[in-house]
Write a protein that binds this DNA or RNA. Structure first.
Lengths: 245, 245
DNA sequence: CGAGCCGTTGAGGGGATTCAAGCTCAGTGG
DNA sequence: CCACTGAGCTTGAATCCCCTCAACGGCTCG
């Protein structure tokens, strides 16, 4: 994991990047801050690069920072008492990661990069201090919390019931949304079969069978080892048929 | 739904009850406030009584208040695109309901009383105004949000995977926790089979079979139409056996 | 080249759903 | 008083979907 501080003004620094021109800032946590605010904090914010598969934080750790996801996809995993790994959330561009650190609570799950990932690391004390000055930031934080809650509940409602086929179809629509956010065009990241299993609570064999079947039907087309294009109308149609069965 | 304002000081009022002596205040949202703060707001807070089955708020509404649950159990339901009802959360004593109203966002799900319920209705503007004066309240709010998120995710991780038997056992442990909070002694509220189905994503027949089986095994004992006692050690043992199968 | 990881496919069995029937119990009205 | 009704619960039998176990192919990498 490489960490590079972001200096807004010191142009001599080879990695110099301005928070103010950050591509995701407008829809990220600090979108509500003005230039003055940014000037006060930019030296505390670090850019983080994470290769595929690397862990951002572990279950049980009490973090000292939160992260804004600038690029890539991060999954949140936990191990149930029965010993199985489950993926309880996916985060995409602009999402805030590890907010429990702001409350000094330990992370409940492990955050792992599903693709090469770029994030901004924001120390909790920066958020604390700025929150005291800027009520808008506090409100934005609440919005983020609510967003995470809504994501979690819609995940629950959408991805955990129905046939294996329906769940896979639903997952594909969610992945397509994440892809749109990321602006990867029509290419959609397709998780490993084991990951699909951990998300949808099915075996890797079932996941494989469903994916293969959808490929045969032309709903998805492989364009790389872990990437597909998908036929949105066909997908919607397949879902509709699945409903009235 | 009967609504009665809570006057702290006007002892002439027959329903007079003091927020300051509220049984759940210490672990509810306003536990962080001092007497002065309470004096400022108590006239805005109303006591709400809700009979079993009544709806507290509907999907899509933008609420003008949040609620602290003083007594009883409330379930959050939503209808998935495929048309099935799913229960995505249960709230017990001390929980905060409808926080999305603070952000002027519509409720995502319907809140329904699973038992006779008592709550305090707190207008959003009261929270807004008080939050501006009392940073501790804001922090407490964030804690509540995080709590809701953690509940949702552990629900997801615990109740949506494994065999029907395991899911029912898990649900019983959660219900027992809710009961402990409520201080109903050893009696645990047992949902209708249809509700169990909506929580665990199974048919009412399967729910019924599992419950009957556990009753035959002596893990649970009916003590009323919708109430059981449960043998905690036997339950824990059953769960353990379920894991290493 | 073999080892290991990942994905695919088949065969068989088991658990959940589906369809169906009968049960208890509370409320209603003859 | 009791038949009638409907809602909720239970149980059985047949079906089907998913899991389990197993074998195999493609791929990367030492």
């Amino acid at each position: 994991m490489s960490i590079v501080p972001l200096y807004r003004q010191d142009s001599r620094h080879p990695q110099a990047q301005a928070c103010s021109s950050c591509a995701v800032r407008s829809h990220a946590l600090f979108g509500v801050l003005d230039e003055d605010d940014l000037d006060r904090i930019h030296t505390h914010i670090a850019h983080v690069d994470l290769p595929l598969g690397k862990v951002l934080f572990e279950t049980g750790e009490v973090g000292s920072a939160v992260f804004t996801l600038r690029e890539g996809i991060v999954r949140f995993e936990r191990v149930t008492e029965s010993g199985e790994r489950r993926i309880v959330r996916l985060a995409g561009r602009g999402d805030l990661l590890g907010q429990e650190a702001l409350l000094r609570r330990p992370h409940l799950d492990e955050a792992i990069a599903c693709s090469p990932v770029q994030l901004c690391r924001i120390p909790t004390h920066v958020v604390d201090e700025l929150g005291a000055l800027q009520p808008a930031l506090v409100r934005e934080l609440m919005q983020r919390w609510q967003q995470a809650l809504e994501d979690s509940q819609s995940w629950l409602a959408d991805l955990t019931c129905g046939s294996a086929r329906r769940r896979v179809l639903k997952l594909l629509t969610k992945l397509a949304d994440l892809g749109d956010q990321a602006g990867t065009g029509s290419a959609v990241w397709l998780p490993k079969r084991e990951e699909i299993g951990a998300m949808l609570s099915m075996t890797i064999e079932t996941a494989s069978r469903q994916v293969s079947q959808l490929r045969r039907e032309g709903v998805i087309t492989a364009i790389g080892l872990r990437s597909v294009t998908l036929d949105a109308p066909a997908l919607a149609q397949a879902l509709r048929e699945e409903h009235n069965r």
